[in-house]
Design a protein around this nucleic acid. Structure first.
Lengths: 111, 111
DNA sequence: GCTATATATATTGATATTCGAATATCCGCA
DNA sequence: TGCGGATATTCGAATATCAATATATATAGC
């Protein structure tokens, strides 16, 4: 069971927060897409994603050479509601990340 | 301006989270009431309240020997919405804290 | 098997967080 | 002015977190 304080801890870091919001918005993203959108190093992104997965916020699935992250199916409704609220309050910042995503070359195709 | 990641950091600790939710629910509470409700030491409560105040989540006002904490007027609407959502998802736990509050002897009167 | 790409993990050092204990401050009242 | 209750702050130790670097694993294509 996801404790609210632990969930907030997951969102208390900018990298984890915006990775989560982007994944929530885009349904699923792989590590290299998040590297591009958030302009961060691969180990940094990967480590934070692993943390989000182990807390039950995200789940991952490998397709070919890519590992795609999406929201965990077990995430309770209140947590999703908090993500929606945070998203709505930060549309400006999210738009910048989205633009970097769409401008990305060689984006892995969802197969 | 309150950054969402910083707000979540404030709520990432059980003491700070439930102190905030209780204050949000009860309008205002003093340190000794929170000590009773959360069953924690005075320095611990006081330290976390100071942190919440310096982040712009709470504000304090002294009345006589007591210092009452309430939600900061500057707290943005999205933050309040997140508190409401968290509250609704944790009514059971909150009820226990409230009962300790109402059972408290020598509770300072709001003057 | 070899190589390139994508991702994960381990290690290290710096920094942050948390707590309890002790102490300080502030207020009301005698 | 002095005392007691309420609250705040400081200090040190234990622990957690973080970023950067290096290394390991997995997969695809040849």
């Amino acid at each position: 069971m996801l404790e609210p304080a632990q969930f907030f801890k997951c969102l208390a870091d900018e990298t984890r927060l915006y990775a989560t919001l982007l994944i929530h918005q885009q349904d699923e993203l792989c590590v290299c897409e998040l590297m591009e959108a958030l302009d961060d190093s691969q180990p940094k992104i990967s480590r934070h994603l692993a943390q989000l997965r182990s807390c039950g916020v995200l789940s991952d699935t490998r397709r070919g050479q890519w590992v795609f992250y999406s929201m965990a199916k077990t995430l309770p409704e209140w947590a999703l509601e908090i993500l929606r609220t945070t998203q709505d309050a930060n549309l400006d910042r999210l738009k910048i990340f989205q633009e970097k995503l769409t401008a990305m070359k060689n984006r892995p195709q969802c197969c």
